[in-house]
Design a protein around this nucleic acid. Structure first.
Lengths: 241, 241
DNA sequence: AGAGACTAATGAGTAATGCTCACCGTGTCC
DNA sequence: GGACACGGTGAGCATTACTCATTAGTCTCT
């Protein structure tokens, strides 16, 4: 169980920290945060519980540090990769694909992030939050590029689009994260990108765009009104209910 | 702290269960699952810890039951409400709006569901899962209606659309759930509905023969509607945004 | 090389907490 | 009115995050 024959040997600080984090990561991923005991982590790292607490103040801090290390390794070369992709659609797809690929490759780690770290109050203070912010910020920039190039509407609500992309990606990967199914990052990235792209795209750029807009607006208006005037039941959509 | 003067009194089973669930709900919502102790729940319910365990096998089961009760109350009249809404856009919006409204009205409860219950392995066994499944199933049906009516592409990937809608809604409400901001269910529902609707809509709504067809339909609809009352309309939904 | 000092490592110990169980008292039924 | 079934109790158990006084490597200085 222990691995190493428990002798009192003094190791450099970095080595100890690395041992602990490696052990913690393994067990956290295998059993989840709540079902992992610090004693077990310490044992696997070849030390006693008290030693662990010399390097990490709390079990939660250990979780945070483990996730931070993972996150940093994942996004080390991210910016550079993105720079190599040209065109709004491609860049959008890359962002979505990258997200899905990480989930696909490291589901246990992503479960930790999504289920354990993110809900915790100290999430905002963790570097994971900051890294993630920079990451989603990139998405908004890509959308802005799309607007600038004329591919997207000028009136797109950026925040909602960001939520649409990442929310959808995560939701899509849920069953997989629960170990109940498969998904293909490639296919999903294509599908999501297309849907989002179409949702944002200015349709019929050259051919009677004004008519397009007009017709669509009218369609929606009529639909709404038809719903409202339907005498059978009061359609209390919108407010109230 | 206790509330009631702790006497040995025999209450009907239902009353005891109700007391426990009421106390549990209050404290779970206030402090989260992990930071709530069964002793505290028992005290608030006016009994001793052992009594609580006579009615609920584990703390987790108590959480599950509390959430189930909430979920059932929320969606009691849901199907009926949906039936009262006509038109694909409106029905889509109702679904999204309902989801957002529940989050807005009961953030603490939704945090429990999203952060505590859903990640747990027994989620699949809970009635919350089944209710939720029926709920999202409705979304797929609305999309199918949209396809049948010719508003949406025939090739739409249904699962992805469902993920898009609910993923986006939840992602959008995150900051609010963490108590770090506000959001408007009305505005968000409009924005999400429009984005999704456009993402699914058959493009080329405004090219050639399709326009003629559409215009004809609109003319007829407007004529029909002009006969009816002219209600104050909500200018809210607009285009894109 | 040897002594001393510094401090990493230890492991026994603590408080909190989910959960159990043998017993006790109360309401009910004959 | 007596007995019994069972609901309620609270002391107690096992686990676990975290602490701290003690122990013993290792580095420095002579």
């Amino acid at each position: 169980m222990t691995g190493r024959p428990r002798r009192r040997e003094r190791l450099p600080r970095d080595a100890r920290v690395a041992d602990i984090m490696r052990a913690a990561r393994t067990i956290f991923c295998a059993k989840g945060y709540a079902d992992t005991s610090t004693a077990e982590i310490a044992a696997r790292a070849g030390m006693v519980e008290g030693t662990l607490y010399r390097y990490f103040a709390t079990k939660r801090e250990l979780l945070t540090r483990v996730v931070e290390a993972f996150y940093e390794s994942i996004f080390a070369d991210y910016e550079q990769q993105l720079q190599g992709v040209r065109g709004t659609w491609n860049r959008l797809r890359f962002l979505i694909w990258k997200h899905l690929s990480v989930i696909h490759a490291e589901p246990a780690m992503c479960r930790l992030i999504m289920y354990e770290l993110r809900p915790s109050p100290q999430y905002r203070q963790s570097s994971v939050y900051k890294l993630n912010q920079r990451y989603t910020q990139r998405t908004l920039e890509v959308i802005k590029e799309g607007i600038a190039s004329g591919e997207f509407h000028r009136t797109v609500a950026l925040r909602i689009v960001r939520d649409l992309i990442f929310g959808c990606a995560e939701h899509h990967a849920w069953a997989y994260l629960r170990g109940e199914g498969q998904f293909s990052p490639d296919d999903a990235a294509d599908a999501i990108t297309n849907l989002v792209y179409r949702g944002l795209a200015r349709e019929g750029v050259g051919t009677g765009a004004v008519v397009d807009e007009s017709v669509q607006r009218l369609e929606q208006a009529v639909q709404r009104l038809e719903g409202l005037s339907e005498p059978r039941r009061r359609p209390r959509h919108g407010r109230g209910a």
